[in-house]
Design a protein around this nucleic acid. Structure first.
Lengths: 221, 221
DNA sequence: TTGACCCAAATCGTATACACTTATACAATA
DNA sequence: TATTGTATAAGTGTATACGATTTGGGTCAA
Protein backbone atom coordinates (compact mmCIF):
# COMPACT_ATOMS: atom_id res chain seq x y z
CA UNK A 1 0.00 0.00 0.00
CA UNK A 2 1.52 3.35 0.86
CA UNK A 3 -1.41 5.52 1.73
CA UNK A 4 -0.79 8.08 4.36
CA UNK A 5 -2.52 7.60 7.68
CA UNK A 6 -5.80 9.45 7.69
CA UNK A 7 -6.30 11.90 10.48
CA UNK A 8 -9.17 11.35 12.85
CA UNK A 9 -11.71 14.16 12.92
CA UNK A 10 -10.94 16.33 15.88
CA UNK A 11 -13.08 16.10 18.94
CA UNK A 12 -14.88 19.19 20.13
CA UNK A 13 -12.60 19.43 23.12
CA UNK A 14 -9.54 19.49 20.89
CA UNK A 15 -10.99 22.18 18.69
CA UNK A 16 -11.77 24.32 21.69
CA UNK A 17 -8.28 23.73 23.06
CA UNK A 18 -6.81 24.80 19.72
CA UNK A 19 -8.90 27.95 19.63
CA UNK A 20 -8.04 28.92 23.18
CA UNK A 21 -4.38 28.13 22.67
CA UNK A 22 -4.28 30.32 19.59
CA UNK A 23 -5.98 33.14 21.47
CA UNK A 24 -3.48 32.88 24.31
CA UNK A 25 -0.48 32.77 21.99
CA UNK A 26 -1.83 35.66 19.98
CA UNK A 27 -2.33 37.71 23.09
CA UNK A 28 -6.08 38.05 22.78
CA UNK A 29 -6.30 36.28 26.11
CA UNK A 30 -3.76 37.85 28.40
CA UNK A 31 -2.03 36.66 31.54
CA UNK A 32 -4.29 36.58 34.53
CA UNK A 33 -7.45 36.59 32.49
CA UNK A 34 -10.02 34.28 34.08
CA UNK A 35 -11.60 31.71 31.79
CA UNK A 36 -15.20 30.98 32.75
CA UNK A 37 -16.49 27.65 31.62
CA UNK A 38 -20.07 28.55 30.73
CA UNK A 39 -18.98 31.76 29.07
CA UNK A 40 -16.63 29.86 26.76
CA UNK A 41 -19.29 27.21 26.27
CA UNK A 42 -21.78 29.83 25.13
CA UNK A 43 -19.15 31.45 22.94
CA UNK A 44 -18.60 28.24 20.99
CA UNK A 45 -22.18 27.05 21.42
CA UNK A 46 -21.29 23.81 23.16
CA UNK A 47 -21.71 22.43 26.66
CA UNK A 48 -19.22 22.80 29.49
CA UNK A 49 -17.92 19.25 29.23
CA UNK A 50 -15.65 19.66 26.21
CA UNK A 51 -14.64 23.08 27.52
CA UNK A 52 -13.48 21.52 30.78
CA UNK A 53 -11.46 18.92 28.90
CA UNK A 54 -9.90 21.62 26.76
CA UNK A 55 -8.91 23.64 29.81
CA UNK A 56 -7.53 20.52 31.41
CA UNK A 57 -5.29 19.97 28.39
CA UNK A 58 -4.12 23.56 28.34
CA UNK A 59 -3.29 23.22 32.00
CA UNK A 60 -0.76 20.48 31.38
CA UNK A 61 0.62 22.50 28.50
CA UNK A 62 1.26 25.19 31.06
CA UNK A 63 -0.85 27.84 29.38
CA UNK A 64 -3.60 27.79 31.96
CA UNK A 65 -3.85 27.27 35.66
CA UNK A 66 -6.89 25.56 37.13
CA UNK A 67 -7.69 26.22 40.75
CA UNK A 68 -10.06 23.82 42.40
CA UNK A 69 -13.56 25.20 42.44
CA UNK A 70 -12.27 28.62 41.52
CA UNK A 71 -11.88 28.44 37.79
CA UNK A 72 -9.13 28.67 35.23
CA UNK A 73 -6.77 31.56 34.61
CA UNK A 74 -4.28 32.23 31.84
CA UNK A 75 -0.90 31.61 33.43
CA UNK A 76 1.56 34.36 33.90
CA UNK A 77 5.12 33.56 32.88
CA UNK A 78 7.76 35.50 34.71
CA UNK A 79 11.12 36.35 33.23
CA UNK A 80 12.59 33.70 35.50
CA UNK A 81 10.39 31.09 33.90
CA UNK A 82 11.15 32.18 30.36
CA UNK A 83 14.80 31.92 31.25
CA UNK A 84 14.21 28.49 32.74
CA UNK A 85 12.43 27.26 29.65
CA UNK A 86 15.23 28.35 27.39
CA UNK A 87 17.76 26.64 29.66
CA UNK A 88 15.75 23.44 29.39
CA UNK A 89 15.49 23.80 25.66
CA UNK A 90 19.25 24.17 25.33
CA UNK A 91 19.78 20.96 27.30
CA UNK A 92 17.20 19.01 25.35
CA UNK A 93 17.77 20.36 21.87
CA UNK A 94 21.52 19.85 21.98
CA UNK A 95 20.84 16.29 23.08
CA UNK A 96 18.40 15.65 20.29
CA UNK A 97 20.52 17.22 17.57
CA UNK A 98 23.42 15.00 18.59
CA UNK A 99 21.34 11.92 17.95
CA UNK A 100 19.59 13.38 14.94
CA UNK A 101 22.52 14.45 12.78
CA UNK A 102 23.89 10.96 12.15
CA UNK A 103 20.40 9.85 11.14
CA UNK A 104 19.50 12.77 8.90
CA UNK A 105 18.99 11.80 5.27
CA UNK A 106 19.34 14.20 2.34
CA UNK A 107 15.56 14.30 2.05
CA UNK A 108 15.25 15.55 5.65
CA UNK A 109 17.72 18.35 5.03
CA UNK A 110 16.02 19.29 1.82
CA UNK A 111 12.68 19.59 3.55
CA UNK A 112 14.23 21.76 6.25
CA UNK A 113 15.62 24.01 3.55
CA UNK A 114 12.19 24.38 1.99
CA UNK A 115 10.79 25.48 5.32
CA UNK A 116 13.51 28.10 5.60
CA UNK A 117 12.36 29.39 2.25
CA UNK A 118 8.86 29.77 3.63
CA UNK A 119 10.16 31.62 6.67
CA UNK A 120 12.02 34.05 4.42
CA UNK A 121 8.82 35.35 2.93
CA UNK A 122 6.70 35.21 6.08
CA UNK A 123 6.02 38.34 8.08
CA UNK A 124 3.14 37.27 10.27
CA UNK A 125 4.67 36.66 13.68
CA UNK A 126 2.31 33.86 14.74
CA UNK A 127 2.81 32.00 11.52
CA UNK A 128 6.54 32.60 11.91
CA UNK A 129 6.57 30.81 15.27
CA UNK A 130 4.82 27.84 13.68
CA UNK A 131 7.29 27.61 10.83
CA UNK A 132 10.16 28.05 13.23
CA UNK A 133 9.13 24.93 15.09
CA UNK A 134 8.47 23.14 11.84
CA UNK A 135 12.08 23.79 10.83
CA UNK A 136 13.58 22.70 14.13
CA UNK A 137 11.46 19.58 14.37
CA UNK A 138 12.33 18.64 10.80
CA UNK A 139 15.97 18.54 11.84
CA UNK A 140 15.22 16.75 15.11
CA UNK A 141 12.74 14.12 13.93
CA UNK A 142 15.31 11.75 12.39
CA UNK A 143 16.62 11.20 15.93
CA UNK A 144 13.56 9.06 16.56
CA UNK A 145 13.22 10.56 20.04
CA UNK A 146 9.50 11.12 20.01
CA UNK A 147 9.01 11.70 23.70
CA UNK A 148 11.70 14.31 23.67
CA UNK A 149 10.17 15.96 20.62
CA UNK A 150 6.79 16.21 22.33
CA UNK A 151 8.38 17.75 25.39
CA UNK A 152 10.32 20.32 23.41
CA UNK A 153 7.27 21.20 21.35
CA UNK A 154 5.41 22.03 24.53
CA UNK A 155 8.18 24.31 25.73
CA UNK A 156 8.26 25.89 22.31
CA UNK A 157 4.60 26.85 22.24
CA UNK A 158 4.90 28.09 25.78
CA UNK A 159 7.54 30.68 25.01
CA UNK A 160 5.96 31.58 21.69
CA UNK A 161 3.65 34.06 23.31
CA UNK A 162 6.57 35.93 24.80
CA UNK A 163 8.18 36.46 21.49
CA UNK A 164 4.78 37.82 20.53
CA UNK A 165 4.45 39.95 23.61
CA UNK A 166 7.95 41.30 23.77
CA UNK A 167 7.84 42.54 20.21
CA UNK A 168 11.14 40.82 19.66
CA UNK A 169 10.30 40.85 16.00
CA UNK A 170 10.97 44.57 15.78
CA UNK A 171 14.46 44.22 17.15
CA UNK A 172 16.06 42.53 14.23
CA UNK A 173 15.85 39.28 16.15
CA UNK A 174 13.98 37.47 13.42
CA UNK A 175 16.63 38.19 10.81
CA UNK A 176 19.40 37.09 13.15
CA UNK A 177 17.49 33.95 14.05
CA UNK A 178 16.90 33.05 10.43
CA UNK A 179 20.57 33.59 9.68
CA UNK A 180 21.42 31.08 12.40
CA UNK A 181 18.90 28.66 10.92
CA UNK A 182 20.81 28.61 7.66
CA UNK A 183 24.06 28.09 9.55
CA UNK A 184 22.54 25.24 11.52
CA UNK A 185 21.33 23.56 8.38
CA UNK A 186 24.78 23.86 6.86
CA UNK A 187 26.39 22.30 9.94
CA UNK A 188 23.94 19.42 9.71
CA UNK A 189 24.90 18.90 6.09
CA UNK A 190 28.53 18.65 7.15
CA UNK A 191 27.58 16.29 10.00
CA UNK A 192 29.35 18.68 12.37
CA UNK A 193 27.75 17.62 15.63
CA UNK A 194 29.84 19.76 17.94
CA UNK A 195 29.45 22.83 15.79
CA UNK A 196 25.70 22.36 15.70
CA UNK A 197 25.53 22.10 19.48
CA UNK A 198 27.49 25.28 19.95
CA UNK A 199 25.35 27.13 17.46
CA UNK A 200 22.12 25.84 18.99
CA UNK A 201 23.23 26.99 22.38
CA UNK A 202 23.89 30.45 20.99
CA UNK A 203 20.64 30.38 19.02
CA UNK A 204 18.64 29.63 22.14
CA UNK A 205 20.47 32.08 24.33
CA UNK A 206 19.59 34.96 22.04
CA UNK A 207 16.05 35.72 23.13
CA UNK A 208 16.74 35.77 26.86
CA UNK A 209 19.73 38.07 26.56
CA UNK A 210 17.69 40.37 24.38
CA UNK A 211 14.96 40.36 26.97
CA UNK A 212 17.39 40.74 29.84
CA UNK A 213 18.64 43.94 28.29
CA UNK A 214 15.11 45.21 28.11
CA UNK A 215 14.33 44.19 31.68
CA UNK A 216 14.71 47.65 33.24
CA UNK A 217 12.38 49.14 30.66
CA UNK A 218 9.74 46.48 30.36
CA UNK A 219 7.67 45.56 33.38
CA UNK A 220 8.68 41.93 33.48
CA UNK A 221 7.16 40.74 36.69
CA UNK B 1 5.45 32.63 57.98
CA UNK B 2 6.98 29.34 57.13
CA UNK B 3 3.81 27.39 56.85
CA UNK B 4 3.44 24.99 54.01
CA UNK B 5 0.75 25.67 51.49
CA UNK B 6 -2.40 23.83 52.45
CA UNK B 7 -3.62 21.43 49.85
CA UNK B 8 -7.09 21.76 48.38
CA UNK B 9 -9.29 18.70 48.69
CA UNK B 10 -8.77 16.59 45.61
CA UNK B 11 -11.36 16.52 42.91
CA UNK B 12 -12.92 13.19 42.00
CA UNK B 13 -11.06 13.19 38.70
CA UNK B 14 -7.74 13.55 40.50
CA UNK B 15 -8.53 10.73 42.89
CA UNK B 16 -9.42 8.47 40.00
CA UNK B 17 -6.27 9.50 38.18
CA UNK B 18 -4.22 8.68 41.27
CA UNK B 19 -5.85 5.29 41.64
CA UNK B 20 -5.37 4.40 38.00
CA UNK B 21 -1.80 5.67 37.99
CA UNK B 22 -0.99 3.56 41.02
CA UNK B 23 -2.54 0.53 39.37
CA UNK B 24 -0.51 1.08 36.23
CA UNK B 25 2.73 1.61 38.12
CA UNK B 26 2.05 -1.42 40.26
CA UNK B 27 1.41 -3.55 37.22
CA UNK B 28 -2.17 -4.39 38.06
CA UNK B 29 -3.07 -2.69 34.81
CA UNK B 30 -0.68 -3.94 32.18
CA UNK B 31 0.44 -2.56 28.86
CA UNK B 32 -2.21 -2.82 26.18
CA UNK B 33 -5.02 -3.24 28.67
CA UNK B 34 -8.07 -1.30 27.46
CA UNK B 35 -9.64 1.06 29.98
CA UNK B 36 -13.40 1.28 29.53
CA UNK B 37 -14.96 4.43 30.85
CA UNK B 38 -18.20 3.09 32.25
CA UNK B 39 -16.50 0.06 33.69
CA UNK B 40 -14.13 2.28 35.65
CA UNK B 41 -17.01 4.55 36.52
CA UNK B 42 -18.97 1.63 38.01
CA UNK B 43 -15.85 0.43 39.77
CA UNK B 44 -15.48 3.72 41.64
CA UNK B 45 -19.22 4.39 41.73
CA UNK B 46 -19.04 7.69 39.90
CA UNK B 47 -20.11 8.92 36.50
CA UNK B 48 -18.02 8.85 33.35
CA UNK B 49 -17.19 12.55 33.42
CA UNK B 50 -14.48 12.50 36.11
CA UNK B 51 -13.21 9.23 34.64
CA UNK B 52 -12.75 10.88 31.27
CA UNK B 53 -10.85 13.75 32.84
CA UNK B 54 -8.65 11.34 34.73
CA UNK B 55 -7.83 9.41 31.56
CA UNK B 56 -7.11 12.67 29.81
CA UNK B 57 -4.57 13.56 32.48
CA UNK B 58 -2.94 10.17 32.36
CA UNK B 59 -2.67 10.56 28.63
CA UNK B 60 -0.45 13.62 28.90
CA UNK B 61 1.55 11.84 31.55
CA UNK B 62 2.22 9.23 28.92
CA UNK B 63 0.71 6.35 30.86
CA UNK B 64 -2.35 6.00 28.69
CA UNK B 65 -3.19 6.43 25.04
CA UNK B 66 -6.61 7.68 24.03
CA UNK B 67 -7.80 6.91 20.54
CA UNK B 68 -10.68 8.95 19.24
CA UNK B 69 -13.95 7.14 19.71
CA UNK B 70 -12.10 3.94 20.45
CA UNK B 71 -11.21 4.23 24.06
CA UNK B 72 -8.12 4.36 26.22
CA UNK B 73 -5.34 1.82 26.48
CA UNK B 74 -2.41 1.53 28.88
CA UNK B 75 0.61 2.57 26.85
CA UNK B 76 3.34 0.17 26.01
CA UNK B 77 6.86 1.46 26.55
CA UNK B 78 9.49 -0.14 24.39
CA UNK B 79 13.09 -0.52 25.42
CA UNK B 80 13.90 2.27 22.98
CA UNK B 81 11.60 4.58 24.88
CA UNK B 82 12.94 3.65 28.29
CA UNK B 83 16.39 4.37 26.93
CA UNK B 84 15.15 7.68 25.56
CA UNK B 85 13.63 8.70 28.87
CA UNK B 86 16.83 8.02 30.74
CA UNK B 87 18.78 10.02 28.16
CA UNK B 88 16.41 12.93 28.72
CA UNK B 89 16.70 12.57 32.46
CA UNK B 90 20.47 12.72 32.28
CA UNK B 91 20.32 15.95 30.29
CA UNK B 92 17.78 17.55 32.60
CA UNK B 93 18.97 16.32 35.95
CA UNK B 94 22.57 17.33 35.35
CA UNK B 95 21.27 20.77 34.39
CA UNK B 96 19.14 21.10 37.47
CA UNK B 97 21.79 19.85 39.88
CA UNK B 98 24.21 22.43 38.51
CA UNK B 99 21.84 25.18 39.46
CA UNK B 100 20.69 23.53 42.66
CA UNK B 101 23.98 22.89 44.39
CA UNK B 102 24.95 26.54 44.87
CA UNK B 103 21.50 27.18 46.34
CA UNK B 104 21.30 24.18 48.64
CA UNK B 105 21.13 25.10 52.32
CA UNK B 106 22.17 22.78 55.15
CA UNK B 107 18.51 22.17 55.93
CA UNK B 108 17.92 20.87 52.39
CA UNK B 109 20.80 18.43 52.67
CA UNK B 110 19.65 17.31 56.07
CA UNK B 111 16.19 16.54 54.77
CA UNK B 112 17.69 14.59 51.88
CA UNK B 113 19.68 12.55 54.36
CA UNK B 114 16.55 11.74 56.35
CA UNK B 115 14.91 10.43 53.21
CA UNK B 116 17.90 8.20 52.56
CA UNK B 117 17.38 6.80 56.02
CA UNK B 118 13.82 5.93 55.10
CA UNK B 119 14.96 4.25 51.92
CA UNK B 120 17.41 2.12 53.88
CA UNK B 121 14.62 0.40 55.76
CA UNK B 122 12.12 0.24 52.91
CA UNK B 123 11.60 -2.97 50.98
CA UNK B 124 8.36 -2.31 49.19
CA UNK B 125 9.35 -1.52 45.62
CA UNK B 126 6.53 0.93 44.91
CA UNK B 127 7.17 2.88 48.05
CA UNK B 128 10.86 2.76 47.18
CA UNK B 129 10.22 4.53 43.85
CA UNK B 130 8.31 7.22 45.69
CA UNK B 131 11.07 7.81 48.19
CA UNK B 132 13.64 7.74 45.43
CA UNK B 133 11.96 10.67 43.74
CA UNK B 134 11.50 12.39 47.07
CA UNK B 135 15.25 12.23 47.60
CA UNK B 136 16.15 13.49 44.15
CA UNK B 137 13.63 16.31 44.21
CA UNK B 138 14.82 17.39 47.65
CA UNK B 139 18.24 17.97 46.15
CA UNK B 140 16.85 19.60 43.01
CA UNK B 141 14.22 21.88 44.51
CA UNK B 142 16.60 24.60 45.73
CA UNK B 143 17.36 25.31 42.07
CA UNK B 144 14.00 27.02 41.86
CA UNK B 145 13.41 25.44 38.45
CA UNK B 146 9.83 24.38 38.96
CA UNK B 147 8.94 23.72 35.34
CA UNK B 148 11.94 21.47 35.01
CA UNK B 149 11.06 19.67 38.22
CA UNK B 150 7.56 18.94 36.97
CA UNK B 151 8.94 17.61 33.71
CA UNK B 152 11.44 15.34 35.39
CA UNK B 153 8.84 14.08 37.82
CA UNK B 154 6.71 13.00 34.89
CA UNK B 155 9.58 11.08 33.34
CA UNK B 156 10.31 9.54 36.70
CA UNK B 157 6.85 8.10 37.23
CA UNK B 158 6.87 6.89 33.68
CA UNK B 159 9.90 4.67 34.09
CA UNK B 160 8.90 3.62 37.58
CA UNK B 161 6.74 0.82 36.25
CA UNK B 162 9.65 -0.63 34.37
CA UNK B 163 11.75 -0.91 37.43
CA UNK B 164 8.74 -2.70 38.83
CA UNK B 165 8.25 -4.86 35.81
CA UNK B 166 11.85 -5.76 35.19
CA UNK B 167 12.37 -6.97 38.72
CA UNK B 168 15.45 -4.81 38.83
CA UNK B 169 15.12 -4.92 42.56
CA UNK B 170 16.29 -8.49 42.67
CA UNK B 171 19.48 -7.72 40.86
CA UNK B 172 21.21 -5.78 43.54
CA UNK B 173 20.36 -2.63 41.68
CA UNK B 174 18.63 -1.07 44.65
CA UNK B 175 21.65 -1.39 46.90
CA UNK B 176 23.93 0.03 44.25
CA UNK B 177 21.52 2.86 43.62
CA UNK B 178 21.29 3.72 47.29
CA UNK B 179 25.07 3.69 47.54
CA UNK B 180 25.21 6.27 44.78
CA UNK B 181 22.60 8.34 46.59
CA UNK B 182 24.90 8.67 49.57
CA UNK B 183 27.77 9.59 47.28
CA UNK B 184 25.63 12.20 45.55
CA UNK B 185 24.62 13.74 48.85
CA UNK B 186 28.25 13.93 49.90
CA UNK B 187 29.21 15.66 46.65
CA UNK B 188 26.44 18.18 47.20
CA UNK B 189 27.79 18.86 50.67
CA UNK B 190 31.18 19.61 49.15
CA UNK B 191 29.55 21.78 46.47
CA UNK B 192 31.31 19.64 43.88
CA UNK B 193 29.18 20.44 40.87
CA UNK B 194 31.22 18.59 38.28
CA UNK B 195 31.53 15.51 40.44
CA UNK B 196 27.79 15.46 41.02
CA UNK B 197 27.10 15.68 37.30
CA UNK B 198 29.39 12.78 36.55
CA UNK B 199 27.87 10.68 39.27
CA UNK B 200 24.32 11.50 38.19
CA UNK B 201 25.14 10.48 34.67
CA UNK B 202 26.42 7.17 35.95
CA UNK B 203 23.48 6.81 38.33
CA UNK B 204 21.02 7.26 35.49
CA UNK B 205 22.86 5.05 33.07
CA UNK B 206 22.69 2.10 35.41
CA UNK B 207 19.16 0.86 34.80
CA UNK B 208 19.36 0.86 31.01
CA UNK B 209 22.65 -0.99 30.90
CA UNK B 210 21.25 -3.54 33.32
CA UNK B 211 18.23 -3.93 31.12
CA UNK B 212 20.29 -3.99 27.95
CA UNK B 213 22.17 -6.98 29.30
CA UNK B 214 18.89 -8.73 29.96
CA UNK B 215 17.51 -7.88 26.53
CA UNK B 216 18.12 -11.28 24.96
CA UNK B 217 16.36 -13.03 27.82
CA UNK B 218 13.46 -10.73 28.49
CA UNK B 219 10.87 -10.17 25.79
CA UNK B 220 11.39 -6.45 25.52
CA UNK B 221 9.30 -5.54 22.53
C1' DT C 1 -14.73 51.51 62.07
C1' DT C 2 -13.83 46.68 62.48
C1' DG C 3 -14.92 42.01 62.34
C1' DA C 4 -18.18 38.05 62.56
C1' DC C 5 -22.00 36.23 60.44
C1' DC C 6 -25.28 35.17 56.89
C1' DC C 7 -27.45 35.16 52.53
C1' DA C 8 -27.78 35.35 47.39
C1' DA C 9 -25.62 35.21 42.93
C1' DA C 10 -22.11 33.28 40.28
C1' DT C 11 -19.54 29.48 39.08
C1' DC C 12 -17.74 24.98 39.45
C1' DG C 13 -18.06 19.69 39.57
C1' DT C 14 -20.73 15.61 38.68
C1' DA C 15 -24.79 12.57 37.50
C1' DT C 16 -28.02 11.35 34.19
C1' DA C 17 -29.59 10.95 29.45
C1' DC C 18 -28.95 10.62 24.69
C1' DA C 19 -26.73 10.93 19.97
C1' DC C 20 -23.22 9.19 17.39
C1' DT C 21 -19.31 6.19 16.24
C1' DT C 22 -17.05 1.81 16.14
C1' DA C 23 -16.82 -3.18 16.63
C1' DT C 24 -18.90 -7.77 16.20
C1' DA C 25 -21.75 -11.36 14.53
C1' DC C 26 -24.19 -13.15 11.06
C1' DA C 27 -26.67 -13.41 6.71
C1' DA C 28 -26.33 -12.69 1.65
C1' DT C 29 -23.94 -13.09 -2.54
C1' DA C 30 -20.95 -14.62 -6.00
C1' DT D 1 -15.10 -20.56 0.55
C1' DA D 2 -14.14 -15.88 0.47
C1' DT D 3 -16.14 -11.49 0.26
C1' DT D 4 -19.52 -8.06 0.97
C1' DG D 5 -23.49 -6.07 3.24
C1' DT D 6 -26.38 -5.45 7.36
C1' DA D 7 -28.25 -5.70 12.07
C1' DT D 8 -27.00 -5.50 16.83
C1' DA D 9 -24.31 -4.53 20.71
C1' DA D 10 -20.73 -2.01 22.97
C1' DG D 11 -18.62 2.20 23.91
C1' DT D 12 -17.44 6.95 23.25
C1' DG D 13 -18.58 12.07 23.22
C1' DT D 14 -21.66 15.79 24.43
C1' DA D 15 -25.91 18.20 26.21
C1' DT D 16 -28.84 19.04 29.96
C1' DA D 17 -29.81 19.22 34.86
C1' DC D 18 -28.63 19.72 39.50
C1' DG D 19 -26.15 19.80 43.86
C1' DA D 20 -21.93 21.87 45.94
C1' DT D 21 -18.58 25.44 46.62
C1' DT D 22 -16.94 29.98 46.38
C1' DT D 23 -17.52 34.98 46.35
C1' DG D 24 -19.21 39.43 47.26
C1' DG D 25 -21.92 42.11 49.56
C1' DG D 26 -25.01 43.54 53.50
C1' DT D 27 -26.42 43.46 58.32
C1' DC D 28 -25.46 43.67 63.02
C1' DA D 29 -22.92 43.70 67.33
C1' DA D 30 -18.68 45.07 69.69
Amino acid sequence: MGFGTLKPPKTTAEQIADALRAAILHGTLQSGQPLRQDEIAREFDVSKIPVREALSRLEVEGLVEIRHNRGAVVTHLSFREVDEIYAIRIALETLVIKRAIPAQMPADLHQAQLILGEIDVENNLERWAELNWKFHSALYRPSGMNILLKTVEGLHTNVARFLQLSQLGDLGYLAKSQDEHYQLLELCRRKDVDGACVLLQKHLSGPVSYLADLMPITDWT
